[in-house]
Structures are given as structure tokens and as C-alpha cells.
Nucleic acid binder design. Structure first.
Lengths: 119, 119
DNA sequence: CAGGCCAACTAGGTCAACTATGTTGGTCGC
DNA sequence: GCGACCAACATAGTTGACCTAGTTGGCCTG
């Protein structure tokens, strides 16, 4: 990261990675270099790399798996945070099923708890 | 931040602030407490507060002004592209984090229960 | 009184170190 | 061969420090 623009390093790295994903140079499902390797590659500290990855992880573009690595998200969506309406719809569908799942599991747990505490 | 959920502190703080904005307890244009005050208020380090603010800043919900403070985005301050869609996006983001949080807590409870019934 | 300087705040960025946790591969003893 | 163990590596989270830069208000000098 030698670019001397006023733009902070962690944003430059995030931009670069985002572009690599969009450009196909990092295919969906493919692993990124390790944090340490990226740090060396961009000539930045571990912290700024972790920040950059954190942003893209927050945007849903990357998925980090502890102990294994960071991977480009496959499946739908991608496209940066504030995406199209289609992304939003998909997100809502996901959330709806997630809520239904949670409700069922909660009911299960609750009944188990009340049974046990009753006696 | 004393909540003992598995959710990391910087996300809990981000969620809380996001909710305060949506709930109107932090009006558009209003300033947030200083970083140091927030850190004390949440009983967290400066770093995690800065991280939380950074996320919301990245989401466009907050606007930081160096030397002055951090303010809740004021409707049409800066373009921010989609206008009304931003509200929906924020709502979805909030729901997503809420679901993730609940999911983790449920998983915690479930594993505790199954452990206990094992013996 | 006016102007300028300075100290005390603010946010933002970067770095280094530590902990926790998960994955993987190799070695050692049986 | 197989299981237990262990070392090396990975992400993730947290903390504390240091530096930059903008803003504000008060104090002091001319």
C-alpha cells in the first residue's frame, strides 16, 4: 500500500480486495491469502489488514472461518453493502426462515425447561 | 457492556447505538457522547468504541467530524445514494444482527441443556 | 480592546502485543 | 495401524499506546 492518497490504508485494502472479488481474480469460494501474507503483500500492519477484512466481512462479501481462513462468499448477493432491492428481498427471506427456526428451537427449550423445573 | 452473550463487544455497542438512533433517543443531527464518554458508559476500551462507531460510520448512519464529534446522519446531509432505501437497509441490518445474536444465545442454552441431560 | 498563541478537547488512523479458539498435520507410544 | 498428544498455523477479539488533525476557548501580550 504505497498509494499516498489521503484515503486510509485499511480502506484502500478493502477497496482492492473488493475489486479483486468483483473482477473475478478472487473466485467465489476461493480462500484469501492469510492475514500475515496480505499484510506483507500490502506492506501494512496486521491491524489494518484485519480491519479491511472486517469491513468486507461485515458487508457479507467475505466469510471468515476461524482456524481455516477467509473465503469469498459464494451464493447470491455479493455486491457491496447497500445493494439492490433484490438483495434486500433475499435478505428478508433469509431472516424470515431464521426467525421461524429460532422460534421452534426456543419453544423446544422452553418446554424442556419447564418440565424439568416443575419437579 | 456486561452482557455475557458470545457476541463481541464492539458489535453489541454498535447494535445499541443503532437502536438508539432508530428509537429516536438519538435524534438526527444530534451529537453522540465523546468516544471517551462512550467507553466509560459501556465499560469498554476506547478501541472497541472506535470500532463500533467506525461500523456505523461505514454504514452511513453516523457522521464523524474531526475535532468536533460524531453526529447522527441528518436526512439529506450528503447524498448517500439511495435515500429512502437506506432506512430499509438499516432495518435489515438490525434484524440480521438481532437474529444472529439470538441464534448464538439459543445455541448456548441448547448446548447447556444437552450437556446437563447427558449426565 | 485586538490579535495571536496555546492548552485542552475532539475524531481518526496505525501499530504491537496479548488472549481465545479452531484446524491441521506430525510424532510418539502402544 | 491407531489413538493421544502436541506444535504450528489460522481467524477473531481486545487492549493500550502513539500520532495526526481539526475545533474551541481562554489567556497573555502588544
Amino acid at each position: 500500500m504505497v498509494k499516498k492518497s489521503g484515503r486510509p490504508a485499511y480502506l484502500q485494502i478493502a477497496d482492492d480486495l473488493r475489486e479483486q472479488v468483483r473482477g473475478g481474480s478472487l473466485a467465489p469460494g476461493a480462500p484469501l491469502p492469510s492475514t500475515a501474507q496480505l499484510a506483507e503483500q500490502y506492506d501494512a500492519s496486521l491491524s489494518v489488514v484485519k480491519m479491511a477484512v472486517g469491513i468486507l466481512r461485515n458487508e457479507g462479501l467475505l466469510i471468515g472461518q476461524q482456524g481455516k481462513g477467509v473465503f469469498v462468499r459464494d451464493e447470491e448477493s455479493s455486491e457491496s453493502g447497500q445493494g439492490t432491492a433484490v438483495d434486500l428481498v433475499n435478505e428478508v427471506i433469509e431472516l424470515r426462515t431464521a426467525v421461524r427456526d429460532l422460534s421452534e428451537r426456543l419453544a423446544q427449550v422452553e418446554s424442556t425447561l419447564s418440565e424439568r423445573s416443575d419437579r
